[in-house]
Design a protein around this nucleic acid. Structure first.
Lengths: 142, 142
DNA sequence: CCACACTTTCCCACGAATTCCCACGCAACT
DNA sequence: AGTTGCGTGGGAATTCGTGGGAAAGTGTGG
């Protein structure tokens, strides 16, 4: 999966650019749904299929599992690229992520994330001021 | 990995020189991402591959891990040398590191670091006035 | 069941930013 | 003094981001 961080504008119709580097990954469709920390997750179709299989196996007896399914599965929407390399975010999800004006589209393992610019910056500032634990850092960077 | 400290100018297009001694290390591409203390890390492709594998294995259930991935992985950008031995820093990273005008490119274990001149000097002053702990120093220098 | 209005989807177009390539001047070394 | 490598800048072609208009689809009310 590619990575990178890009800033785009959401237009009046709720359309957002998919960064060029990601286009071929989602050319046969993608699924957009709610994500953690108030962002949106965008999965390529193949990645979503695996997730869907696991979601269907969750026990219906567990309240937490039911809530999670509602959050994740019920909120999901199929989408595909238009000729200009954009996707239209459904109104519900647009509101959830407060995706108006400037948004950040970021590559992450297994998915893309769409953030309102304000939330992205706030989160990043927090992380910058509270650096990751030395253990985590050492394990990764060496 | 070579070492050394070099001062270059970032031009209007966001391009920075890669010191000649490092060019063959990054000739098959490099990855630039956010670093600690507000600098940028530049990894040769081989070093990045190891980091990427570990990042992709971090648990998505952990808030700190998610934020860390966003900091390191989402912020990252592939880049390659131009014919004159430079790289273009993406706007996002340029802003993060405040890389305008004079920058310091420094060799570090496993990577290169790119600093705004002001931050580099400020950090150096701080280290000079608060030297590392005797234990650390002894362990390293003997 | 039909008509109307609104929303969504598809397509086209243009300005802006990026990328690639080439060129110059300085410095050091032969 | 010539030559080579290096740091810096600029121009042109291409890609990219963004907006708008027309057509198709959807839901509502009569």
């Amino acid at each position: 999966m590619p990575f990178g961080e890009y800033r785009y504008a959401v237009d009046d119709k709720g359309r957002v650019i998919v960064p060029p580097a990601f286009r071929d990954l989602v050319e046969d469709g993608m699924v957009i749904t709610r994500g953690m920390e108030g962002c949106l997750y965008v999965f390529p179709m193949s990645a979503w299929d695996r997730i869907e299989q696991r979601l269907e196996q969750l026990p219906l007896t567990d309240r937490e599992a039911r809530d999670f399914v509602r959050f994740f599965y019920s909120g999901a929407a199929k989408a595909k690229l238009d000729a200009a390399g954009r996707v239209t975010l459904p109104p519900t999800l647009r509101e959830f992520a407060q995706a108006q004006g400037g948004v950040i589209v970021a590559g992450a393992p297994n998915r893309l994330e769409v953030w309102s610019e304000e939330r992205w910056n706030a989160n990043l500032d927090r992380v910058t001021q509270e650096p990751p634990s030395p253990d985590l850092l050492r394990e990764l960077v060496g």
